[in-house]
């Protein structure tokens, strides 16, 4: 046995378990994902007709964030085997050995229960019910059931990210209207081009871990077409709140410009210089640009509907 290997084994066996730090528990909640969830949830609250006490609104947003974080912790618990294989995720608290798997699961379940109960107390059962379903959707339907079974995993997973606006709306009104459903569909159809643009240049990790991402299973060319088709569907869908009279001109104009720009980027992904298998010869520069723009797209689109409602 080489010295390096014996040193490594010695360290691995004798490394003291000093316990996790608070930041490790925080990392279980996927703070970056939660920040987007908070934003869309807050927009749902702002655009909903009716009144909600600002303190209760703040608690509702906190509950949405807590619920999303809980779902993230359960996701990390279930995915700990593949997280230890993929380079991007090896530093997560469970594969890094900072938090035990059972601890992460318990943490996630406790937070999920607390978030739903608090939301029910602060607002209403409709909002709490949708929050509970969104946690179940992400943790069970997406993570446990479908993520490792189908290359359409991201399409289905997009639903999980689409719930916060509906929850925000329901927190104010006590029911689910047409506008939050349209916002749900917008995030739902936005997720595939957003994530598949990323996966075009970051699929090696998923391949190594055996996760059937679209570029791994169907190839890059098929993925490029899917990015374009979903962006094409997204264009009229994002305009629908305007032509159905649920949003004003500010939103309509913003959705049109952003949709046209997103189509331009998706067209760039489709027309990228490729080899026979559709693999990029330009280091996936158009896919990287499309991924970055997709984040800006969603942020500006949701901001526009809030501005439109407030002006």
């Amino acid at each position: 046995m080489s010295d390096h290997v014996s040193d490594f084994l010695h360290d691995a066996v004798s490394a003291p378990d000093l316990g996790a730090e608070p930041k490790d528990w925080l990392a279980l909640l996927k703070p970056r994902v939660v920040s987007l969830v908070v934003f869309t949830g807050a927009i749902g609250l702002v655009i909903a007709p009716g009144h909600i006490n600002p303190l209760l609104a703040a608690i509702a947003i906190f509950c949405i964030a807590l619920g999303a974080g809980a779902a993230g912790a359960i996701n990390m618990w279930y995915d700990r085997d593949i997280d230890s294989i993929m380079r991007r995720t090896t530093t997560r608290p469970i594969p890094a050995g900072k938090i035990k798997a059972g601890g992460a699961l318990g943490f996630g379940i406790v937070l999920a229960v607390i978030s739903v109960l608090l939301l029910a107390m602060a607002t209403n059962l409709c909002a709490a019910g949708v929050l509970a379903f969104s946690i179940f959707y992400y943790a069970v339907i997406y993570t446990i059931w479908l993520k490792r079974r189908t290359p359409q995993n991201i399409v289905i997973g997009g639903g999980a990210g689409a719930f916060p606006a509906v929850i925000g709306w329901a927190a104010v009104t006590g029911h689910i209207g047409l506008l939050p459903m349209l916002l749900f569909l917008i995030v739902f159809f936005w997720t595939p081009p957003h994530f598949w643009s990323l996966s075009l240049y970051a699929s090696a990790d998923y391949e190594k871990a055996g996760v059937p991402m679209l570029p791994v299973v169907k190839g890059a060319r098929h993925t490029r077409w899917n990015v374009f088709i979903y962006t094409l569907i997204l264009f009229p869908l994002a305009l629908s709140p305007w032509f159905l009279g649920l949003a004003g001109r500010i939103y309509g104009a913003t959705a049109f410009v952003l949709g046209a720009a997103f189509l331009y980027f998706a067209w760039g992904v489709l027309r990228d210089e490729q080899d026979a298998k559709g693999v990029s010869l330009s280091k996936d520069a158009p896919a990287r640009a499309a991924f970055k723009f997709s984040i800006l797209y969603l942020f500006l689109l949701f901001a526009a509907i809030a501005v439109d409602r407030l002006v």
Binding site: L18, G19, E21, P22, W25, I59, L118, M121, A122
Partner: peptide, 27 residues
């Protein structure tokens, strides 16, 4: 380091429980 981390976790737990009570009170 072990004691420092344990103290930090305990304070976090205390803050979380305090926050939970505060939220219930505010609601």
């Amino acid at each position: 380091e072990f004691l420092r981390r344990r103290r930090a976790r305990n304070f976090l737990l205390l803050a979380a429980l305090g926050g939970f009570c505060l939220i219930i009170y505010v609601i």
